[in-house]
């Protein structure tokens, strides 16, 4: 692989594109976890919203309706997570995994109903196209991105502002850190947790839609391919802070982009081992940081009023 400024800029462009769905999912997961809920339903939520977005866009011919359907799917699945983990207070690990299993199964079931057993993934006639920026200059591959890429990047400071600077963010963090105290102070723990799940669901829906409506313009069974689990890892790696989550997403995606590039240039490299690296790094990071330091204190704990 030749190392020129151009090739590096292309690499950066690919990094941004690869990072977008993971970043959107990770931001959604951050919001939800800061309210005290570990949502392992993310993997399935990304898949099903990517699917419903695709189908809605294809049936109605409107990408915007597709986008809306994907966000709605994200919200519905996160509300189901709320029903189980907030209202009923069921074990969050198992209910989250159950939602991933359910959403995955539903996506595959409806896919088969809609498109039969074919192996070629159906594609949209028209998908969101990348914006044209800096055409004809070396910067073109970096900035000619889908508008959703820019939205995702913009959502990083927006999420940080919402969490740290708004009264909603204050309430959200308080139910994630000390629900008893929040309750005493008159904050409805259930309500705020549901609100966090709705916000998170919208973000996850956008993440799923980006893949099927913009980047690929098509849907296949393996479209998510573990991106939800990566997002979970990145939230921990990023210490539950949007800025660091962005850094984690970019780092992961850079390794991915580099790997794809090396593979394409025919260099014999055990690229699977390279791909496994970010996962191992996350485990090392969790081990070094120790999860007790900065994880929301009430994460995984269902809230029950005494009495």
């Amino acid at each position: 692989m030749e190392l020129s400024i151009e090739s590096i800029l292309v690499l950066f462009g690919a990094t941004l594109r690869i990072a977008t769905p993971i970043l959107l999912g990770a931001l959604g997961e951050t919001v939800i976890e800061r309210a005290g809920i570990l949502n392992l339903g993310i993997e399935g939520t990304l898949l099903l919203s990517s699917f419903t977005g695709f189908v809605a866009a294809q049936v109605t011919g409107s990408l915007w309706i597709g986008l809306l359907a994907a966000m709605l799917t994200g919200v519905v699945l996160c509300l189901l997570m709320g029903l189980l983990s907030v209202t009923l207070g069921v074990n969050q690990h198992v209910s989250g995994l159950g939602i991933t299993m359910l959403a995955t199964a539903l996506a595959l079931f409806w896919f088969r109903l809609q498109y039969g057993g074919g192996t070629t993934p159906p594609a949209l006639d028209e998908s969101f196209q990348p914006l044209q920026a800096f055409t004809g200059t070396p910067l073109e591959p970096v900035f000619s991105q889908h508008w959703l890429v820019y939205v995702a990047l913009l959502l990083v400071p927006v999420t940080a502002w919402m969490l740290n600077r708004t009264s909603f963010g204050l309430r959200l963090r308080s139910v994630g850190e000390n629900p008893e105290a929040a309750d005493t102070a008159g904050v409805s723990v259930y309500r705020v947790r549901y609100e966090a799940l709705i916000v998170g669901g919208i973000l996850m829906g956008l993440g799923g839609a980006f893949l099927s409506l913009a980047q690929l313009g098509a849907f296949s069974h393996g479209i998510i391919n573990g991106r939800g689990w990566v997002a979970i890892a990145i939230v921990i790696f990023g210490n539950w802070r949007p800025g660091r989550v962005l850094a984690g997403a970019l780092l992961f995606s850079f390794v991915q982009a580099l790997q794809l590039r090396l593979q394409a240039s025919g260099i014999a490299l055990p690229y699977e081992l390279l791909l496994a690296l970010p996962y191992l790094l996350t485990i090392v990071a969790i081990a070094l940081v120790g999860r007790n330091v900065s994880a929301p204190a009430a994460l995984l704990k269902p809230y029950r009023r005494e009495g």
């Binding site: 690990h93 689990w229 055990p270 699977e272 081992l273 996962y279 969790i286 120790g290």
Partner: peptide, 26 residues
């Protein structure tokens, strides 16, 4: 990691599933 450092086992075991799939693919 769980018994000595109190690291949540759910996330680590889940991540190692992905790592294992890469090893198999390799």
């Amino acid at each position: 990691l769980k018994v000595y450092l109190s690291v949540d086992e759910v996330v680590t075991t889940l991540l190692l599933n992905s790592v294992m799939l890469f090893i198999v693919s390799y």
